[in-house]
Design a protein around this nucleic acid. Sequence first.
DNA 1: GCAAAAGTGTTTGACATACACCCATGC
DNA 2: GCATGGGTGTATGTCAAACACTTTTGC
Lengths: 240, 240
Amino acid sequence: MYKEKEQEPVALYDFYQQKDKMYVATDCIIFGFDSGSLKLLTFKRRVEPLKGEWSLIGSFVKLEEDVSSAAKRVLEEITGLTNVFMEELKTYGVADRDPGYRCISIGQYALIRLNEYDKELVEQHGAVWHDVNDLPELVLDHRQMVDDALEELKRKARYRPIGFELLPEKFTIPQLQSLYEAIYQKELDSRNFRKKVMSHNVLIKLDEKDKSSSKRGAYLYKFDHDTYEKLIRSGYNFEI
Amino acid sequence: MYKEKEQEPVALYDFYQQKDKMYVATDCIIFGFDSGSLKLLTFKRRVEPLKGEWSLIGSFVKLEEDVSSAAKRVLEEITGLTNVFMEELKTYGVADRDPGYRCISIGQYALIRLNEYDKELVEQHGAVWHDVNDLPELVLDHRQMVDDALEELKRKARYRPIGFELLPEKFTIPQLQSLYEAIYQKELDSRNFRKKVMSHNVLIKLDEKDKSSSKRGAYLYKFDHDTYEKLIRSGYNFEI
DNA sequence: GCAAAAGTGTTTGACATACACCCATGC
DNA sequence: GCATGGGTGTATGTCAAACACTTTTGC
């Protein structure tokens, strides 16, 4: 509907025309999980200002595009993934946050499985995974976005099964525990953790074992989305 | 910094210039509490499109203005209040949400005390309080914003003492309970409620009674911000 | 003296926490 | 046979939920 790019499109009503327009961006805080710690996808900024510095992956929102679609577009361009867990974090709207020109940014965080994304594509875009506990300096307010996202993740993980978005389809209980330890930044008791997780009856035990981290091997499980949905609809209070 | 209104300001870098600019608005979901129920401040829209219909109170964000400042400005213009509790809700960024022109809006909700705002000013602006359980139809996605804000209020009220922002400085325990019942939309047991609230030691009992709703009268209390801050800083888990 | 709201304690069950040992296997 | 991580059960304390009667006072 707002197609013309050469000539500036015109607002339909006088009232709007006197008002200021500005750039609207979206920045993606993309998390992964591996080897016991959370990872963040960053890349080297390719445009002035601040060219060459570490940055989150973002884009300007186009006139004909939803804000959430813009973030999904960016994520797909870089990782090849669609149908990824992604939620709005908050808006970064301080007037002078971007030295280039007035630009607000809507932070959106995504959780992806490190065994599923397109590694070549990521490389082509110069994107790099960093351990969240060992991040380089990031441009603008991007570090704040990451910190906010980690806080939000901590809050959300408690009452919603978003942790599973970060693990492979098949995972072991020790892996799951290690993930929650990374999110909550504290050690958990394995007996209590297992008890609580199992009590919800949303894990399907498989006949396979994962022997990559022990001789005995740990049983693999899958998250049972259907049962979870049913529970939630009936008012169940899910908590990990 | 971005002052010129007649001539469109120019972005400093080529990269920006090819991108789309759009209007950024903020809409305020302003809640009050009285007579056992939550109220929402709405007004009749004065500009096309949708002139004359019920709407939230909002404004376009100016180039030199923070998004949060814009919301505070609107709130002060209409109620005369500053230093009001206000937080970002979320961004409404669907491409065709505003028929006038591409415009995203950042919803921000505010909690105010109905005994403190400037009633004349509110009237001058044609603003009207509605019971949230009996709202008229609102323009655009404003009804969605209200519903989202009510959800958020329910979540936030549990772990943060934001309820007190809606009551007069001095309030009774039954008033406080009635407020929480309105927020949670469910009745609470008065013995358990009082026990829990008092257990935090953040209420200061006054020597006055409020007799407006009973012959016996109920003691008035004040919220003890200082003690609350100390508790929180020391990691206390506040919950109502 | 009675209606109407304010104020007060105890019991119960559910759940979070703390805690230590055996199991299976590859080397 | 031993080192390594996987897997299990019980006891204790804390806290939320349920529940009913007395107090005060204006009329």
